[in-house]
Computed example of a mutant assay.
Amino acid sequence: MSKEMCKMNFLKTTILLVFFFIASCPYAIGSVGTGNDRDVNYEMHYPIVYTRDSVAEKKINTDLYQYIEKFRRDYHGGKFINGNFTYEVRFEDDNYISLILHDYRWTGGAHGHTSYIGLVYNKRDGEKLPLRYFIHLTDADFVTIFDFPLYNRKNELLNLKAKFSYKDCPHKIPNNYFLKGNGIVALIFQPYQRAAHAEEMTYTPIEPKWIDYFNRKNP
């Protein structure tokens, strides 16, 4: 066998070994799996988080189970006609994972309603982190936040015509948020809070320079 052939065989073997290692290790390509469930009038695709620490992993998934089980319990209790439960991963690094749950329920009428639930966990200890862990805000800060850029669920920047006026918005800071990376925290607003239902969830990113300001202002 020529030296060239030996090199090619070695390269193929190395690639296959790397592939099998990645396939067997959930941390190498991501740490969120998907669980599935369905009934006559609902479908669920929910997150299952994996971490290197089994205690943290159990803590995170136990917390997530509360949201999953509440959806099932409300369905079987007749609180909605049909529904859909999904999720998205918005950010993940070695320390944090940021998810948004989509809890859609139709109770009759023209359309159903989706609740968007932002959840941020510390992957090292499994703690669910409140908004204040990253940024200190009060309802009085809404007047400032209102003028920040606002995006819809498709990550499209909304113009003035698409946004509700200041007087038509609830002047409250939501506790709902997600991480965008690069030190950016994004506040989640539910449908109808900042824009029409067609825009679905809207969000306002807050950059590190503003986070620094608010944390000094609201110690």
Rank of each mutant, 00 (worst) to 15 (best):
residue 113 H to Q: 07
residue 38 R to L: 06
residue 132 R to M: 08
residue 120 V to R: 00
residue 196 A to F: 00
residue 2 S to V: 03
residue 136 H to C: 11
residue 1 M to W: 00
residue 165 S to E: 09
residue 43 E to Q: 08
residue 207 E to V: 11
residue 160 L to V: 10
residue 139 D to P: 01
residue 67 Y to Q: 03
residue 47 P to V: 03
residue 11 L to A: 09
residue 211 I to E: 06
residue 63 D to I: 13
residue 13 T to F: 02
residue 46 Y to M: 02
residue 117 I to L: 09
residue 18 V to C: 11
residue 87 Y to N: 12
residue 36 N to Y: 14
residue 217 K to C: 06
residue 95 N to T: 15
residue 87 Y to W: 10
residue 115 S to R: 12
residue 143 V to I: 14
residue 167 K to F: 10
residue 86 T to F: 07
residue 109 G to M: 00
residue 7 K to Q: 10
residue 217 K to D: 01
residue 150 L to V: 13
residue 147 D to V: 10
residue 87 Y to S: 13
residue 169 C to F: 03
residue 191 P to N: 01
residue 44 M to C: 08
residue 47 P to H: 08
residue 184 I to T: 13
residue 70 K to H: 05
residue 130 P to F: 05
residue 189 F to A: 03
residue 176 N to L: 03
residue 26 P to I: 06
residue 173 I to G: 04
residue 118 G to W: 05
residue 128 K to L: 13
residue 174 P to F: 04
residue 94 D to Y: 03
residue 217 K to S: 05
residue 213 Y to D: 00
residue 91 F to P: 14
residue 97 I to C: 09
residue 106 W to H: 11
residue 180 K to C: 15
residue 215 N to F: 00
residue 28 A to R: 05
residue 40 V to S: 04
residue 137 L to T: 08
residue 49 V to I: 14
residue 176 N to G: 04
residue 127 E to K: 13
residue 109 G to K: 02
residue 171 H to F: 00
residue 63 D to A: 06
residue 211 I to G: 04
residue 103 D to H: 02
residue 158 L to V: 01
residue 47 P to G: 04
residue 162 A to D: 09
residue 203 Y to T: 00
residue 120 V to W: 06
residue 196 A to N: 05
residue 134 F to N: 08
residue 175 N to P: 04
residue 149 P to N: 09
residue 39 D to G: 07
residue 8 M to W: 08
residue 183 G to K: 13
residue 195 A to C: 09
residue 138 T to L: 02
residue 14 T to L: 15
residue 193 Q to Y: 11
residue 22 I to E: 02
residue 146 F to N: 02
residue 186 A to D: 00
residue 67 Y to V: 10
residue 17 L to P: 10
residue 78 G to E: 03
residue 212 D to V: 14
residue 175 N to R: 01
residue 187 L to P: 06
residue 198 A to M: 07
residue 137 L to V: 04
residue 192 Y to A: 09
residue 186 A to E: 04
residue 58 K to F: 11
residue 210 W to N: 13
residue 27 Y to C: 12
residue 59 K to D: 04
residue 182 N to L: 01
residue 26 P to G: 08
